[in-house]
Design a binder for these strands. Structure first.
Length: 439
RNA sequence: GUGGGUAUAGCUUAGUUGGUUAAAGCGCCAGUUUGUGGCACUGGAGACCGUCGGUUCGAAUCCGACUAUCCACCCCA
């Protein structure tokens, strides 16, 4: 296929037939975030490269090999955001949002870019919804964050299909001790570990725990567990998080192997995972990043958040067989015969549209029969035929396309209002407006 | 970056051991006597069989390379 009609590798189009699904999810998430007191923040797709190097971490795969980085004509290095947190944190500092009172609670929808090999449910351009809270060290904030995510999944009836995996990786102090213990342990198996794990041994030994190689994971089974190395404060914090989750009825599974791939995480880390999406089972991931703001040059400001993958969530909803309501349904289609009718139809659809109801009339010049076929094809709830007779009488019949029932309606100034009234009175399938769960 | 699979209309596919104008279903467009959709019927548009090269009298079919795509490793949302 010619290059100009081929999308870039790893990028996806959202087609007209599917866009309502995104809109539905976005609306639901906005409502949910706002009900928890979060406000939207919108930041640029690109940032100075240095922001991600410092924020996400120089040793991470994301920074080392997955960033879309380029120089501007002026010579500054710019990077397309690989995640949403760094930009939000930057904006918090740049605009001193913390002066408006703490905590600062934000949510975002972002497109992210990572130069990776494409795979099922992993793309080079992907979309995240995220929540962030800055300026609170309390375990209550961790619990609230997790509750917010859970709440979104529950509203979509997929709470049961996802497992919340929870861990604490401690503060930098406990982590240093843990790293030592890990290194000591894995050094005993130096001759057996895979090559990547050998390099991890120096850089980031925790990542070995994640290794999928059978040999490494076998060795890792008996490796020291981070939870045995965290300090009293971190332990107490973790207990506090669990206590609040318990009392909120949020189920979780402690998984000491969850380590997260971004350097900024401290203490609480969590993932919502599923086994229904192939190899990319993490739908939502997050945790606490108490050191991030300082790392970016701000004051000490304990913070936390999560990011939720929109493509993966959509894929999971598809897999679960849920139906998302399509609010784009056509309320009224007016079939016309002749120029006078067309003029009148333009006037009438305008009135209906003023009630935010979709109304259409012929713009192709089709025969009456073909117009009716079209009305049927687009799923119009009502149709109306407009010709010289109707215009003479100033009255027409609107037909319910599902039941076939016809009602008379006058074509005067109140047409829009009258139509809405008839539509509501005859509403026989209100269920179509609601999200329905799958299997 | 490393593996493996797959490439035929918009979509899903058929195409027999290489043999004339590449087939079907769905979808799309039009029509089935002048003013009413779904069903049915008729017709139409739409494919240089991923690309380039090779073998052959002859290639969608065999071989090679390239490209695209899917899946997995890795990583993560």
């Amino acid at each position: 296929m010619a290059l100009i009609t081929k999308r870039v590798y790893g990028a996806e189009d959202v087609l007209p037939k599917d866009s309502y699904k995104w809109q539905f999810l976005e609306n639901l998430m906005r409502e949910e975030a706002q009900s928890f007191g979060f406000k939207e923040i919108r930041t640029p797709v690109f940032e100075h490269t240095e922001l991600f190097r410092r924020g996400v971490g120089d040793t991470t795969d994301v920074v080392q090999k997955e960033m879309y980085t380029f120089d501007t004509k002026g010579g500054t290095s710019i990077t397309l955001r690989p995640e949403g947190t760094a930009g939000a944190a930057r904006a918090l500092l740049e605009h001193a949002l913390y002066n408006d009172g703490l905590p600062v609670k934000t949510y975002y929808f972002v497109s992210c870019y990572r130069y990776e090999k494409k795979q099922a449910n992993r793309y080079r351009e992907f979309h995240q919804f995220g929540l962030e809270a800055y300026g609170t060290a309390s375990p209550a904030a961790d619990a609230e964050m997790i509750c917010a995510a859970q709440s979104i999944f529950d509203r979509l009836y997929i709470g049961e299909r996802l497992t919340l995996e929870l861990n604490s990786i401690g503060c930098p102090d406990c982590r240093a001790k843990y790293y030592e213990a890990l290194k000591k342990y894995f050094e005993g198996y130096k001759d057996k570990l895979c090559d990547t794990c050998l390099s991890r041994l120096e850089r980031n030994p925790m990542r070995i725990l994640d290794c999928k190689s059978p040999i490494c994971s076998e060795i890792a089974k008996n490796a020291p567990v981070v939870l045995d190395y965290i300090c009293d404060d971190c332990r107490e914090h973790f207990e506090g998080v669990k206590r609040l989750l318990d009392s909120s009825g949020v189920k979780y599974k402690i998984n000491p192997r969850i380590v997260r791939g971004l350097d900024y995480y401290t203490r609480t880390v969590f993932e919502f995972v599923t086994d229904e999406l192939g190899a990319q089972g993490t739908v939502c991931g997050g945790g606490r990043y108490d050191g991030l703001i300082e790392e970016l040059g701000g004051q000490h400001m304990p913070s936390l958040g999560f990011a939720l993958g929109m493509e993966r969530l959509l894929a999971l909803l598809d897999a679960s067989g849920s139906t998302i309501p399509d609010f784009d349904k056509c309320g009224l289609y007016i079939a016309t015969m002749g120029d006078r009718a067309q003029e009148k139809a333009f006037e009438l659809v305008k009135q209906v549209r003023s009630y935010s109801v979709r109304a259409e009339t012929d713009i192709v010049g089709r025969s009456l029969r073909a117009q009716m076929k079209y009305a049927d094809k687009i799923g119009a709830e009502y149709s109306m035929v407009l010709g010289d007779d109707e215009i003479e009488r100033n009255k027409a019949e609107i037909k319910n396309m599902t039941t076939g029932k016809k009602s008379e309606i006058s074509l005067d100034k109140d047409f829009g209002e009258d139509f809405i009234r008839v539509k509501i009175e005859n509403e026989d399938n209100p269920g179509a407006c609601f999200f329905t769960k799958g299997k």
